[in-house]
Design a protein around this nucleic acid. Structure first.
Lengths: 153, 153
DNA sequence: CACTGATACATGCAAATGCATCTAGTTTGA
DNA sequence: TCAAACTAGATGCATTTGCATGTATCAGTG
């Protein structure tokens, strides 16, 4: 079962993750230093973005928490800030009294769109020159496959 | 020059980045919750790891800062903590009096190895079942290509 | 229904983070 | 050669984060 190929499989997995991680750092560093995030930190934008992509327009806090690298308490307070700025609204979940549904206000939707347009341009300027269309498609496929597998743990 | 294919190119780049980012979040979330990082936070481990991979055994703080998603001041204080715990050592750079060279102490090297062994196993358990060897190689290639392109301005 | 344990989110508090700024060493150019 | 501009890193301070815990609701069992 184990042997030389087992240890090289472990090494390959580790190197792959390392490379994925460093590329994420490099891209994120550029993106967050851009002018798009002077008005709103990236992590807060990410919550607005996630809400904007959601068909029902509402998400539970714990659903959002799965998408974001933040502790539950940090997300709770990040949402406090967004709420104080009038960008999102908390509602008690109808089917579960413990739960909180989050939705965008009109101001939140506007701000997401404004930042989003610039953000998407910045992304394109970084990613498009780096990889061919085919390579991007493959990278998209592989990362999605990885994410799905890990989420299913 | 622009047209329907221009906007779809932008969309592809954005979706690719989004997928890369979310996969990174999913994997990192699992990794950092593991028992390997009870003794040392991931970000601090990452500095030890980076030093351990460096041929000369020494790195400038600004070099480390490129690899990590932290502000300069945060890295400075993270290194304070590592130094207080006796895991790394600061030395003034011989060729530039402003610079600081960081190197592992023996204790730092030991701790990195200990955590590293477990960490690598955790990575393998997440990545290996998700992607074939060929897919991992391709993911490694694509992320490295992306990182190199982004780093080069 | 009462009771036990689990889940969703909020909050007190200590620690980590980032921005602006400071200090010190280095490079530039007149 | 020397002052001005620049760079590396440290530090004061306000904000953000996470851990531990608290509160309220839900689910399961007798």
């Amino acid at each position: 079962m184990s042997g030389p190929s087992a240890s090289s499989a472990v090494r390959l997995a580790a190197e792959t993750w390392e490379s994925l991680f460093r590329s994420q750092v490099a891209v994120m560093r550029k993106l967050q230093s851009g002018p798009a995030f002077k008005t709103l930190p990236v992590k807060e934008y990410d919550v607005l973005f996630t809400l904007s992509r959601c068909p029902s327009g509402q998400l539970r806090l714990n659903e959002i928490n799965d998408k974001v690298l933040l502790s539950q308490s940090s997300l709770s307070r990040l949402v406090d800030r967004l709420e104080k700025r009038g960008l999102v609204e908390r509602t008690t979940a109808p089917d579960d009294g413990r739960g909180v549904l989050l939705s965008l206000t009109e101001a939140g939707r506007e701000l997401q769109k404004t930042i989003g347009r610039e953000h998407v341009r910045d992304i394109a300027h970084l990613v498009a020159p780096a990889l061919t269309v085919e390579e991007q498609r493959e990278l998209l496929r592989l990362t999605e496959k990885l994410r799905a597998s890990v989420a299913g743990h």
